[in-house]
Design a protein around this nucleic acid. Sequence first.
DNA 1: GTCTATACTTGGATAGAC
DNA 2: GTCTATCCAAGTATAGAC
Lengths: 218, 218
Amino acid sequence: MAKSGPASTLRTGSTAGSAATRQALVDAAIEALKADGFSGASARAIAGRAGCNQGLVFYHFGSVANLLLAALDAVSADRLERYQASVEAAASPTELVDAAAAIFREDLEAGYVTVLVELIAGATATPGLGPEVAARIEPWKQFARDALDAALGDSPLASLVPSGDAAHGVVALYLGLELLSHLDGDRAPALALFDHARQLATLLQAVGTLPPATQAPA
Amino acid sequence: MAKSGPASTLRTGSTAGSAATRQALVDAAIEALKADGFSGASARAIAGRAGCNQGLVFYHFGSVANLLLAALDAVSADRLERYQASVEAAASPTELVDAAAAIFREDLEAGYVTVLVELIAGATATPGLGPEVAARIEPWKQFARDALDAALGDSPLASLVPSGDAAHGVVALYLGLELLSHLDGDRAPALALFDHARQLATLLQAVGTLPPATQAPA
DNA sequence: GTCTATACTTGGATAGAC
DNA sequence: GTCTATCCAAGTATAGAC
């Protein structure tokens, strides 16, 4: 798959318009995916949002699918960086859940995860898109895995559920919650779940910390 | 929203072709959603699968969206019945997870949940589709809630997480796992998670059953 | 009442203007 | 090198044939 478009003109010399147009298209693609979903993210719709001709989509990215992948890359980079900073500061499971809840709230309100969800769901339609999207989810899974390892690496829970499997579940839950929240425009149930998760984490943390004798009374 | 098409001709008298065509279209719509996703489930594509003229979609259902909702109704009815029978037989949490795992495996292989996921993700594109889809998810959530209540209604876990919120999470996880499994064609991680859930359920069941004294040694 | 042929709109992609 | 005008395929919907 040779990259089409002016891939060799990434230096910001010569014509300044190119990079700006690319950026505008990427931003517009993100907005289109958030507002109208995969099937609404057409070259025309995106170019309309970006305020430029739809032919530019194909000039700069070769195809609509490639532009959407570029959009996914942009949000992924943006969000992973944000996550990294926020989660690194969390030492305990409780803090981890708190950080996750805060970020999730941010994601829901900004619609970042929508971009990912729409691309996953739409991947079936475009041949070859699936593997590309799958590869871009890998960092998220790895990140979830690292966070889980750091937070409860030595707890008894970790020996029951391998962090790789747990990370898969966490990512799946994240995507599913986004799917539901976006559907009925109500993110209260998702946030409530995080609240309960926080309580459970606190509980588990206490159980792991306290001497065995104090655990018994049910 | 008045139903268009021959809604009054549901009696199987007069012309037998009508009901058959409707059924063929519904089946084809399900297949199209499973294979090509929401954006691939066009009137042309569906009619092609059903072996009939694409205009029939509009005659019988009024719009593509209505046909897709009919498809969702069909799988929902089919699956909920299956779930009900399977879960009613499960008395303990372990058995419940076992039943859920068996059904989930079935769903993944048959692609039933894909229909739901694609419609949720695609709902943003078509005005008015969202609420309709949301209403059709309600029974699934209610079902999950009932199952949770029955399985661990009196356990201490139930007092920590209200079954309504937990049900929301279960449905979200279900949808997310489907999303990921469908993406990279690998359902092993999802099945592994069910395996771990089963172990956890067995553990919790044991903890709840045994006398307090035996719980201590960590 | 059931279905087909046709009208019109939007989408992906490119040849060629600047 | 950057962008626009244009082409053709695919989409929704309906007027009218059977």
